[in-house]
Protein backbone atom coordinates (compact mmCIF):
# COMPACT_ATOMS: atom_id res chain seq x y z
CA UNK A 1 0.00 0.00 0.00
CA UNK A 2 2.73 2.37 1.07
CA UNK A 3 4.86 1.39 -1.85
CA UNK A 4 2.11 2.12 -4.31
CA UNK A 5 1.55 5.58 -2.79
CA UNK A 6 5.26 6.30 -3.08
CA UNK A 7 5.26 5.18 -6.63
CA UNK A 8 2.28 7.34 -7.39
CA UNK A 9 3.87 10.37 -5.72
CA UNK A 10 7.15 10.04 -7.54
CA UNK A 11 5.22 9.56 -10.73
CA UNK A 12 3.39 12.84 -10.12
CA UNK A 13 6.62 14.58 -9.23
CA UNK A 14 8.31 13.30 -12.35
CA UNK A 15 5.38 14.36 -14.47
CA UNK A 16 5.43 17.85 -12.92
CA UNK A 17 9.11 18.16 -13.62
CA UNK A 18 8.69 17.21 -17.24
CA UNK A 19 5.77 19.55 -17.57
CA UNK A 20 7.72 22.44 -16.08
CA UNK A 21 10.58 21.75 -18.44
CA UNK A 22 8.23 21.79 -21.38
CA UNK A 23 7.37 25.39 -20.55
CA UNK A 24 10.96 26.64 -20.87
CA UNK A 25 10.69 27.29 -24.63
CA UNK A 26 7.57 29.34 -23.99
CA UNK A 27 9.34 31.47 -21.37
CA UNK A 28 12.24 31.95 -23.76
CA UNK A 29 9.86 33.12 -26.46
CA UNK A 30 8.39 35.67 -24.09
CA UNK A 31 11.80 36.88 -22.95
CA UNK A 32 12.71 39.48 -25.65
CA UNK A 33 9.42 41.32 -25.21
CA UNK A 34 9.68 41.11 -21.42
CA UNK A 35 13.19 42.59 -21.46
CA UNK A 36 11.91 45.45 -23.59
CA UNK A 37 8.94 46.06 -21.29
CA UNK A 38 11.32 46.06 -18.35
CA UNK A 39 13.59 48.67 -19.94
CA UNK A 40 10.93 50.80 -21.56
CA UNK A 41 8.17 50.67 -18.95
CA UNK A 42 9.57 49.58 -15.59
CA UNK A 43 12.98 51.24 -15.41
CA UNK A 44 11.43 54.71 -15.88
CA UNK A 45 9.54 54.05 -12.65
CA UNK A 46 12.98 54.08 -11.03
CA UNK A 47 13.71 57.36 -12.82
CA UNK A 48 10.66 58.92 -11.17
CA UNK A 49 12.71 59.49 -8.01
CA UNK A 50 14.26 62.54 -9.73
CA UNK A 51 10.97 64.32 -9.00
CA UNK A 52 11.73 64.04 -5.28
CA UNK A 53 15.34 65.20 -5.49
CA UNK A 54 17.07 68.53 -5.70
CA UNK A 55 18.40 69.62 -9.07
CA UNK A 56 22.09 68.80 -9.00
CA UNK A 57 24.13 70.24 -11.86
CA UNK A 58 27.51 69.01 -10.67
CA UNK A 59 27.20 65.30 -9.96
CA UNK A 60 25.30 62.55 -11.69
CA UNK A 61 21.60 62.87 -12.27
CA UNK A 62 20.68 60.63 -9.37
CA UNK A 63 22.92 62.43 -6.86
CA UNK A 64 20.69 65.38 -5.93
CA UNK A 65 19.59 65.57 -2.29
CA UNK A 66 16.14 64.19 -1.48
CA UNK A 67 13.77 67.10 -0.93
CA UNK A 68 10.58 65.02 -1.10
CA UNK A 69 7.63 67.13 -2.12
CA UNK A 70 9.38 70.50 -2.47
CA UNK A 71 9.40 70.27 -6.28
CA UNK A 72 5.67 69.61 -6.31
CA UNK A 73 5.05 72.45 -3.86
CA UNK A 74 6.99 74.75 -6.16
CA UNK A 75 5.19 73.44 -9.24
CA UNK A 76 1.78 74.14 -7.76
CA UNK A 77 2.65 77.65 -6.60
CA UNK A 78 3.31 78.65 -10.22
CA UNK A 79 0.33 79.58 -12.33
CA UNK A 80 1.64 77.17 -14.98
CA UNK A 81 0.27 74.18 -13.06
CA UNK A 82 -3.23 75.61 -13.19
CA UNK A 83 -2.99 76.62 -16.84
CA UNK A 84 -1.64 73.30 -18.11
CA UNK A 85 -4.14 71.26 -16.10
CA UNK A 86 -7.04 73.45 -17.21
CA UNK A 87 -5.99 73.29 -20.87
CA UNK A 88 -5.41 69.54 -20.88
CA UNK A 89 -8.75 68.73 -19.25
CA UNK A 90 -10.87 71.29 -21.09
CA UNK A 91 -9.50 70.46 -24.53
CA UNK A 92 -10.11 66.78 -23.90
CA UNK A 93 -13.67 67.44 -22.78
CA UNK A 94 -14.21 69.58 -25.87
CA UNK A 95 -12.82 66.80 -28.08
CA UNK A 96 -15.04 64.20 -26.42
CA UNK A 97 -18.27 66.19 -26.77
CA UNK A 98 -17.74 67.75 -30.20
CA UNK A 99 -15.93 64.72 -31.59
CA UNK A 100 -18.66 62.29 -30.58
CA UNK A 101 -21.56 64.37 -31.88
CA UNK A 102 -19.74 65.21 -35.10
CA UNK A 103 -18.64 61.67 -35.90
CA UNK A 104 -22.01 60.08 -35.14
CA UNK A 105 -23.75 62.70 -37.27
CA UNK A 106 -21.36 62.17 -40.18
CA UNK A 107 -21.38 58.38 -39.90
CA UNK A 108 -25.18 58.18 -39.98
CA UNK A 109 -25.39 60.37 -43.08
CA UNK A 110 -22.47 58.50 -44.65
CA UNK A 111 -24.37 55.24 -44.32
CA UNK A 112 -27.33 56.68 -46.19
CA UNK A 113 -25.22 57.14 -49.33
CA UNK A 114 -26.57 54.75 -51.94
CA UNK A 115 -23.59 54.72 -54.29
CA UNK A 116 -21.11 52.40 -52.62
CA UNK A 117 -18.32 53.35 -55.00
CA UNK A 118 -18.51 57.02 -54.14
CA UNK A 119 -18.85 56.15 -50.47
CA UNK A 120 -15.58 54.28 -50.68
CA UNK A 121 -13.94 57.27 -52.32
CA UNK A 122 -15.16 59.67 -49.61
CA UNK A 123 -14.01 57.30 -46.90
CA UNK A 124 -10.51 57.16 -48.36
CA UNK A 125 -10.34 60.92 -48.82
CA UNK A 126 -11.24 61.79 -45.23
CA UNK A 127 -8.83 59.15 -43.92
CA UNK A 128 -5.78 60.79 -45.53
CA UNK A 129 -5.05 63.29 -42.70
CA UNK A 130 -4.95 60.41 -40.22
CA UNK A 131 -1.82 59.04 -41.89
CA UNK A 132 0.19 62.26 -41.79
CA UNK A 133 2.60 63.22 -39.01
CA UNK A 134 1.96 66.29 -36.88
CA UNK A 135 5.12 67.93 -38.25
CA UNK A 136 3.63 67.86 -41.72
CA UNK A 137 0.34 69.11 -40.26
CA UNK A 138 2.18 72.11 -38.85
CA UNK A 139 3.53 72.89 -42.34
CA UNK A 140 -0.02 72.68 -43.70
CA UNK A 141 -1.22 74.95 -40.90
CA UNK A 142 1.55 77.42 -41.65
CA UNK A 143 0.55 77.57 -45.33
CA UNK A 144 -2.89 78.76 -44.22
CA UNK A 145 -2.04 80.82 -41.14
CA UNK A 146 1.32 82.51 -41.76
CA UNK A 147 0.77 86.24 -41.31
CA UNK A 148 3.00 87.23 -44.25
CA UNK A 149 2.48 84.43 -46.77
CA UNK A 150 -0.55 82.60 -45.42
CA UNK A 151 -3.49 81.69 -47.63
CA UNK A 152 -6.10 83.06 -45.23
CA UNK A 153 -4.58 86.51 -44.86
CA UNK A 154 -3.65 86.93 -48.52
CA UNK A 155 -6.40 85.16 -50.41
CA UNK A 156 -9.43 85.41 -48.14
CA UNK A 157 -9.13 88.40 -45.82
CA UNK A 158 -7.38 90.77 -48.25
CA UNK A 159 -9.95 90.49 -51.07
CA UNK A 160 -12.68 91.03 -48.47
CA UNK A 161 -10.93 94.14 -47.26
CA UNK A 162 -10.34 92.74 -43.77
CA UNK A 163 -7.08 93.54 -41.98
CA UNK A 164 -4.65 90.64 -41.86
CA UNK A 165 -4.63 88.65 -38.63
CA UNK A 166 -1.39 87.71 -36.91
CA UNK A 167 -2.60 84.17 -36.26
CA UNK A 168 0.42 82.93 -34.34
CA UNK A 169 0.21 85.70 -31.75
CA UNK A 170 -3.56 85.90 -31.17
CA UNK A 171 -4.60 83.42 -28.46
CA UNK A 172 -8.35 83.92 -28.91
CA UNK A 173 -8.49 81.97 -32.19
CA UNK A 174 -6.51 78.97 -31.02
CA UNK A 175 -9.10 76.90 -29.18
CA UNK A 176 -11.04 76.82 -32.46
CA UNK A 177 -7.97 76.12 -34.57
CA UNK A 178 -6.91 73.28 -32.29
CA UNK A 179 -10.41 71.81 -32.22
CA UNK A 180 -10.62 72.08 -35.99
CA UNK A 181 -7.28 70.40 -36.65
CA UNK A 182 -7.96 67.67 -34.09
CA UNK A 183 -11.31 66.91 -35.75
CA UNK A 184 -9.80 67.19 -39.24
CA UNK A 185 -7.05 64.70 -38.43
CA UNK A 186 -9.30 62.22 -36.64
CA UNK A 187 -12.50 62.34 -38.72
CA UNK A 188 -11.57 59.52 -41.08
CA UNK A 189 -10.74 57.21 -38.22
CA UNK A 190 -13.85 57.95 -36.18
CA UNK A 191 -16.03 57.67 -39.29
CA UNK A 192 -14.53 54.24 -39.97
CA UNK A 193 -14.87 53.24 -36.33
CA UNK A 194 -18.59 54.03 -36.21
CA UNK A 195 -19.44 52.94 -39.74
CA UNK A 196 -18.15 49.40 -39.24
CA UNK A 197 -20.49 49.16 -36.27
CA UNK A 198 -23.50 50.51 -38.14
CA UNK A 199 -22.88 47.91 -40.85
CA UNK A 200 -23.16 45.10 -38.31
CA UNK A 201 -26.72 46.13 -37.41
CA UNK A 202 -29.03 43.60 -39.02
CA UNK A 203 -30.99 44.96 -42.00
CA UNK A 204 -34.07 43.10 -40.68
CA UNK A 205 -34.62 45.76 -38.04
CA UNK A 206 -34.84 48.47 -40.66
CA UNK A 207 -37.05 46.37 -42.94
CA UNK A 208 -39.44 45.66 -40.09
CA UNK A 209 -39.46 49.34 -39.11
CA UNK A 210 -40.21 50.36 -42.71
CA UNK A 211 -43.11 47.93 -42.92
CA UNK A 212 -44.48 49.48 -39.75
CA UNK A 213 -44.20 52.85 -41.47
CA UNK A 214 -41.29 54.26 -39.46
CA UNK A 215 -39.67 57.36 -40.94
CA UNK A 216 -35.91 57.65 -41.43
CA UNK A 217 -35.69 59.83 -38.33
CA UNK A 218 -37.46 57.20 -36.29
CA UNK A 219 -35.17 54.50 -37.65
CA UNK A 220 -32.15 56.55 -36.63
CA UNK A 221 -33.46 57.33 -33.17
CA UNK A 222 -34.92 53.93 -32.33
CA UNK A 223 -32.53 51.55 -34.11
CA UNK A 224 -29.18 53.09 -35.10
CA UNK A 225 -28.52 55.25 -32.05
CA UNK A 226 -29.49 52.63 -29.44
CA UNK A 227 -27.17 50.18 -31.21
CA UNK A 228 -24.33 52.67 -31.15
CA UNK A 229 -24.90 53.65 -27.53
CA UNK A 230 -22.69 51.00 -25.90
CA UNK A 231 -19.69 51.74 -28.09
CA UNK A 232 -20.15 55.51 -27.66
CA UNK A 233 -20.38 55.18 -23.88
CA UNK A 234 -17.33 52.93 -23.86
CA UNK A 235 -15.29 55.34 -25.99
CA UNK A 236 -16.31 58.24 -23.75
CA UNK A 237 -15.30 56.38 -20.61
CA UNK A 238 -11.95 55.45 -22.14
CA UNK A 239 -11.38 59.06 -23.20
CA UNK A 240 -12.18 60.28 -19.69
CA UNK A 241 -9.58 57.84 -18.39
CA UNK A 242 -7.07 59.58 -20.69
CA UNK A 243 -8.20 63.12 -19.88
CA UNK A 244 -4.88 64.02 -18.23
CA UNK A 245 -2.95 63.14 -21.37
CA UNK A 246 -2.80 65.30 -24.47
CA UNK A 247 -1.70 64.81 -28.05
CA UNK A 248 1.80 66.27 -27.68
CA UNK A 249 2.25 66.84 -31.42
CA UNK A 250 -1.01 68.75 -31.78
CA UNK A 251 -0.18 71.21 -29.01
CA UNK A 252 3.54 71.42 -29.69
CA UNK A 253 3.81 71.49 -33.49
CA UNK A 254 0.67 73.29 -34.62
CA UNK A 255 1.17 76.58 -32.66
CA UNK A 256 4.86 76.59 -33.69
CA UNK A 257 5.85 77.13 -30.03
CA UNK A 258 4.68 80.72 -30.22
CA UNK A 259 5.16 82.20 -26.74
CA UNK A 260 2.16 84.49 -27.16
CA UNK A 261 -0.05 81.38 -27.35
CA UNK A 262 1.27 79.51 -24.31
CA UNK A 263 -1.78 80.43 -22.24
CA UNK A 264 -4.13 78.52 -24.54
CA UNK A 265 -1.77 75.86 -25.92
CA UNK A 266 0.27 74.64 -22.95
CA UNK A 267 -0.78 71.18 -21.83
CA UNK A 268 0.81 68.91 -19.24
CA UNK A 269 2.82 67.16 -21.96
CA UNK A 270 4.18 70.30 -23.63
CA UNK A 271 5.00 71.86 -20.25
CA UNK A 272 6.96 68.81 -19.17
CA UNK A 273 8.81 68.81 -22.49
CA UNK A 274 9.71 72.51 -22.30
CA UNK A 275 10.84 72.22 -18.69
CA UNK A 276 13.25 69.51 -19.81
CA UNK A 277 14.46 70.74 -23.20
CA UNK A 278 14.28 74.53 -22.98
CA UNK A 279 14.88 75.14 -19.28
CA UNK A 280 16.94 72.04 -18.56
CA UNK A 281 14.99 71.66 -15.33
CA UNK A 282 14.92 67.88 -15.07
CA UNK A 283 13.38 67.77 -11.61
CA UNK A 284 10.46 70.02 -12.52
CA UNK A 285 9.89 68.13 -15.75
CA UNK A 286 9.89 64.79 -13.95
CA UNK A 287 7.61 66.16 -11.25
CA UNK A 288 5.13 67.20 -13.93
CA UNK A 289 5.31 63.71 -15.39
CA UNK A 290 4.75 62.12 -12.00
CA UNK A 291 1.77 64.39 -11.37
CA UNK A 292 0.31 63.33 -14.73
CA UNK A 293 0.98 59.63 -14.15
CA UNK A 294 -0.56 59.51 -10.71
CA UNK A 295 -3.70 61.49 -11.47
CA UNK A 296 -3.99 59.59 -14.77
CA UNK A 297 -3.68 56.28 -12.93
CA UNK A 298 -6.44 57.19 -10.46
CA UNK A 299 -8.68 58.31 -13.33
CA UNK A 300 -8.15 55.08 -15.23
CA UNK A 301 -8.95 53.01 -12.12
CA UNK A 302 -12.13 55.02 -11.55
CA UNK A 303 -13.29 54.83 -15.15
CA UNK A 304 -12.47 51.15 -15.30
CA UNK A 305 -14.60 50.63 -12.20
CA UNK A 306 -17.45 52.44 -13.95
CA UNK A 307 -16.91 50.38 -17.13
CA UNK A 308 -17.13 47.17 -15.13
CA UNK A 309 -20.49 48.24 -13.77
CA UNK A 310 -21.64 49.18 -17.24
CA UNK A 311 -20.30 46.30 -19.30
CA UNK A 312 -18.01 43.77 -17.75
CA UNK A 313 -16.37 42.42 -20.89
CA UNK A 314 -15.29 45.87 -22.06
CA UNK A 315 -13.40 46.73 -18.90
CA UNK A 316 -9.64 46.56 -19.08
CA UNK A 317 -9.20 44.36 -16.02
Amino acid sequence: MRATTDMKLSGVRKKNKIKWKSYIPLYLMALPALIYVFINNYMPLYGMQIAFRELDFSGSIFSGKFVWFDNFKFLFTTKDAMIMTRNTVLYNLLFIVVGTIFSVFVAILFNEILSKRLAKFYQSAVLIPFFISMVVVSYLGFAFLSSENGFINNSILKPLGIDPVSWYTEPKYWPYIILFVHTWKGMGYSLLFITVRIITISKDYYEAAKIDGATKWQQIFYITLPFLKPVIVLMTILSIGRIFYSDFGLFYQLPMSSGALYDVTTTIDTYSFRALMNLGDITMSTATGVYQSIVGFVLILVTNYVTRKFSKEDSLF
Binding site: G47, M48, S272, T286, V290, F297
Partner: peptide, 16 residues
Amino acid sequence: TFTMLFNGGLTSSYIV
Protein backbone atom coordinates in the same frame (compact mmCIF):
# COMPACT_ATOMS: atom_id res chain seq x y z
CA THR B 1 -1.50 45.28 -18.14
CA PHE B 2 0.10 47.57 -15.58
CA THR B 3 2.06 49.30 -18.35
CA MET B 4 -1.26 50.37 -19.88
CA LEU B 5 -2.31 52.02 -16.63
CA PHE B 6 0.79 53.64 -15.27
CA ASN B 7 4.00 55.00 -16.71
CA GLY B 8 6.96 56.91 -15.40
CA GLY B 9 6.45 59.81 -17.78
CA LEU B 10 8.52 60.90 -20.75
CA THR B 11 11.23 62.58 -18.70
CA SER B 12 11.86 59.45 -16.63
CA SER B 13 12.17 57.45 -19.83
CA TYR B 14 14.49 60.08 -21.22
CA ILE B 15 16.71 59.87 -18.13
CA VAL B 16 16.84 56.07 -18.23
